Simulated scan of single mutants.
Amino acid sequence: MLTFAGTRAIFIGALGAVASGVGAAFLGFQKSAWLILGLLYLALGVVYLSGRAGLLMRGFGPTLNRLRSTRGAAVLGLLFGLSIPACAAPLILALLGFVVADGTSAMNPVAGFLLLATFGLALSLPLVVAVFFVPARSLLDRLAALSVRMPRWTGALFVLLGLWSIWFGLFVSISA
């Protein structure tokens, strides 16, 4: 779990360094990622709402048993690091504003890395707590047991998340 959280934080931090280093060009990349992820979330939501969630329960590709190693945790950290959530938009926009206001400085990528690495680590902290503390883990198990009864809510949440992410991809801009 610590490998996952650390890898995710470092990868998201690296994206922050890139955002600080290249400036506004990063926003185009992030907007594309929000659009693609939004479309995927929306499709998942439609599958749940249509009552076809069973289609998602089929196994394909590598099994999770292969990802139980430290190396697998690092791979999952990288994959989850690719999906910087839309709530990171203010941080990314602040980094881009910092680049514009400060000009090009060698400290910008370092500051960007530290800012988004801290954010990435904070994203994983609830999972770390759930894994290392028995009461939190048992609460998570009870919540997971309820998920069988909630496919409509799950679908609705995926649709809302998808629409929100698509909105970010289409309408977030930097204006001075």
Rank of each mutant, 00 (worst) to 15 (best):
T154H: 03
L139T: 07
V110M: 12
A144T: 06
W34V: 04
M107A: 15
T63A: 10
A19F: 04
Y41A: 13
C87V: 09
M1H: 09
A111C: 09
L157M: 11
P135T: 02
V22M: 15
R149S: 07
L170Y: 04
A94K: 08
G97W: 15
Y41T: 02
L163T: 04
S105M: 12
L56V: 07
A111I: 13
R137V: 03
A74W: 04
T63D: 15
L95N: 03
A130M: 13
G169N: 00
V46G: 05
L42S: 05
V134M: 12
P151S: 01
G169Q: 01
L2Y: 14
A17D: 01
A14W: 09
S83C: 11
L114M: 08
I174A: 11
L64Y: 10
L82A: 10
L115C: 10
S165Q: 11
F11P: 03
Y48C: 03
L55W: 14
T63S: 13
L42Q: 03
A117D: 02
S138G: 06
S138W: 09
V110P: 02
G6D: 07
R58E: 15
G72E: 04
F168N: 11
A89G: 12
W164S: 12
R142G: 06
A19N: 03
L95F: 05
S105Q: 11
L82T: 09
L140T: 07
L125Y: 09
A5W: 01
I92V: 14
V100M: 12
P62G: 05
N108F: 06
L139F: 14
L125I: 13
A136M: 09
R142N: 09
L116Q: 03
V99L: 13
A17P: 00
I166V: 14
R52A: 11
L64Q: 12
L127G: 06
I12V: 10
A24R: 14
L157N: 00
G45P: 00
I92Q: 01
A17L: 03
S105F: 04
I12R: 01
L44W: 02
S165I: 03
T118R: 01
F11D: 14
I36E: 12
L15Y: 10
F113Q: 02
A53C: 12
R71G: 10
Y41V: 01
G81N: 06
A73T: 07
G6R: 03
T63L: 12
R71T: 05
L67W: 04
T7P: 06
V22Y: 14
S173L: 11
G28Y: 13
A156P: 00
V159H: 00
L115G: 02
L116H: 02
G38Y: 03
V22S: 07
L123H: 07
S165P: 04
F158R: 00
V129L: 15
I12H: 02
R52M: 11
S124L: 01
L125D: 05
F132V: 08
L161Q: 04
V100H: 10
L55V: 07
C87R: 11
F4T: 01
A73K: 09
A53D: 15
